[in-house]
Amino acid sequence: MSGVHAHALHFHGHSLIHRLPAAVKLVGLLAFVVAVVATPAQAVWAFSGYTLILMVLLVLSEVPARFFLTRLAIDLPFIAFALLLPFVGEGPRVALGPLSVSVAGLLGAWNLIAKATLSAGASVLLAATTEVPDILAGLSRLRVPAVLVAIASFMIRYLEVVAGEFRRTRIAMAARGYQARSALDWKPVAVSAGALFIRSFERGERVYQAMLARGYDGNWRTGAHETIARSQWLAGLIPGIVAVAIMLASRLL
């Protein structure tokens, strides 16, 4: 689980990638990920191609490699899972040093690690180069229902407020000697979660009053969308298009 640092993944900058409209980046990300997922595991050359695309984008984005790689660590639990596959996989087995591993499992592990890592890398790049409000505006531009975008924007706004309240409660509990050791210790945590819900809900009531006070009448008005030039779409989608082309080639060859 990631922590609640709404901007933990964002790297402030003004690069080419940062300046690209969020809607373009979202579509490009989706195309890239679909291409990666749809590529057969044997097509190692295709995965090298995707890695190259990602590296070019990373360089263009001016996001430091170290920043990028530490954020990519979110992938780790799945790598752990994937590493089990050669041991539990089926079919013919080969000796790998002292271990006997399944060939299919080995391929499976490679498949999962390559695909999950490349996709997560692309997601990290989006999050690193796009401000949260811009992602929301991009989603709304891509016709995600306004209500969902509005809920997401409230969620993001109050994430740190709610998490801060929660953190303070837990610090107060720890200050009085509370430490969860076993299942018997769940109760105070759960009760504090209940209290947190009540506080969140009551804040929801006050926020609603504040919205009414400023003329809210039930219609969520999203600001006007900035126009995206066709050339921006074309340029922004190049990496995604190249990835899809690689994928098609890998499936046909």
């Binding site: 924007s153 504040a210 400023r214 003329g215």
Partner: peptide
Amino acid sequence: DPDDQLFMPTVFADVAFGPANF
């Protein structure tokens, strides 16, 4: 509590909320 009053993701969007509704 300004956290109740400022409910939009950015300061600009928040200040714009009233005028846009009106």
